[in-house]
């Protein structure tokens, strides 16, 4: 599955547009990590645990989007966008969406 945030694929033609596909995960924070984070709030600096957590979640969201695209017979997802929002206290939603297409 080709995933890209360009509107085209260089050197290849889009045969068919299949519409919007999306994937999302809602992740709550780990209590242990939250305690570490509250210490970091005194010292400042990077919260490595959260960087990793959000990266893993984002990958999962992409995987879900790819599964959805595969299910409708696409072989690429173009014009992909990310969006993050905190939906509840201590939980973040990672959302990814794009256009499923069939490439020639």
């Amino acid at each position: 599955m080709l995933v890209s945030n360009l509107e085209i694929v260089p050197g290849r033609k889009v045969k068919e547009h299949l519409g919007l596909v999306q994937g999302s995960t809602v992740r709550a924070k780990h209590v242990g990590r939250d305690i570490a984070a509250s210490f970091k709030n005194v010292f400042g600096g990077e919260l490595k645990g959260y960087t990793e957590l959000l990266n893993d979640s984002r990958e999962e969201a992409i995987k879900r989007m790819e599964e959805q695209a595969e299910a409708i017979g696409a072989n690429a997802v173009l014009n992909v966008r990310f969006s993050t929002s905190s939906v509840a206290q201590g939980a973040a939603e990672l959302f990814v969406y794009g256009t499923a297409v069939i490439l020639e």
Binding site: V3, S4, V9, P10, A37, L47, K48, Y50, R58, V80
Partner: peptide
Amino acid sequence: TRLVTGSMVVSID
């Protein structure tokens, strides 16, 4: 072509 990402979570002191 391939999608690439980079991110950082930073906390204020």
